[in-house]
């Protein structure tokens, strides 16, 4: 009774084989697509971050030069003129060092390096045929092929999820760099405007000092008001040059750190899942 069923079972089994192989192919295609998307996502995010980093580096360099210029030219001029009538205590700063410490560097972002180590997912030829040849052990030739493809697809999605988190974190870093760049540009403009006013004030008061000489009693109220303005500009610029780019209490740096390390923690958590 049951023997005629066997050839039928083989026939139907063959259909299952083909259907499973076909499904495996679909899984493989989907896995390749998912992997491609994941790596594109990471690459695009990393490129954006790198480009923003280059932009910020250029702004910071301009800022450092401007600070250096004000420090070594304008403030020196002021001191040269005012030293004749006032005792001045001025301590020069190492502007470049302090500026560099403000910049975020991509190598500080763990996710970028981790992503580089993730390789493409594809079933090797050896794997698939090795599996096929001993099909009975796995519950059917096609079942094995489909199963491996399914596993690879799951792995691809897993990596895609990791990639999404890493890309998100990379974009967060870029946004932080953008914020810093924006602030640095505002400071560049502010320094330029104040420096222009300060230069005029030095020029104007140097004529007064030239005219009135060292005897302070020769100075009128208006003269002294002009000197007061110039001194206030000098103090203002000196304070700005000494101040950090962002809040002195480090609140923003703290927030940036917190935001990025949140992402990094989750990435580690994902990679710890076996």
């Amino acid at each position: 009774m049951a023997f005629p069923i066997i050839p039928i079972a083989y026939g139907v089994g063959a259909v299952k084989f083909l259907s499973d192989v076909w499904k495996a192919d679909e899984y493989a295609r989907e896995a390749r697509h998912v992997n491609y998307e994941a790596f594109t996502m990471i690459e695009a995010a990393a490129r954006r971050l790198h480009s923003q980093y280059e932009k910020l580096e250029s702004t910071m360099m301009k800022l450092a030069n401007r600070k250096k210029g004000i420090m070594s030219v304008t403030l020196k001029d002021f001191i040269g003129v005012y030293e004749k009538i006032l005792k001045i205590d001025f301590e020069e700063m190492h502007t470049v060092d302090s500026l560099n410490s403000l910049a975020l560097r991509p190598e500080n972002l763990s996710g970028i390096n981790q992503m580089i180590s993730i390789s493409g997912v594809q079933m090797s030829d050896k794997e698939i045929l090795g599996t096929f040849l001993f099909s009975w052990e796995y519950g059917g030739v096609s079942g094995a092929i489909k199963k491996d493809a399914r596993i690879n697809l799951d792995i691809a999605y897993t990596r895609s999820d990791e990639a999404e988190v890493i890309a998100h974190n990379t974009d967060t870093a870029r946004i932080a760099l953008e914020g810093i760049d924006d602030k640095a540009n505002s400071l560049l403009t502010l320094l330029a405007r104040l420096n222009a006013l300060f230069l005029k004030s030095i020029q104007y008061t140097s004529e007064i000092i030239e005219r009135r000489g060292l005897n302070k009693r020769n100075y009128s109220v208006d003269d002294k008001k002009a000197l007061m303005n110039c001194v206030n500009f000098a103090k203002t610029l000196a304070d700005i040059l000494k101040a950090p780019l962002f809040d002195s209490n480090g609140k923003l740096s703290g927030q940036i750190d917190k935001t990025l390390s949140t992402g990094n923690e989750y990435i580690k958590k994902m990679q710890a899942v076996k």
Binding site: E164, H168, Y266, M270
Partner: peptide
């Protein structure tokens, strides 16, 4: 991982 991702993206 998908669950961690959802949580991660929300928190991030």
């Amino acid at each position: 991982i998908s669950k961690i991702k959802t949580d991660a993206l929300a928190e991030m």
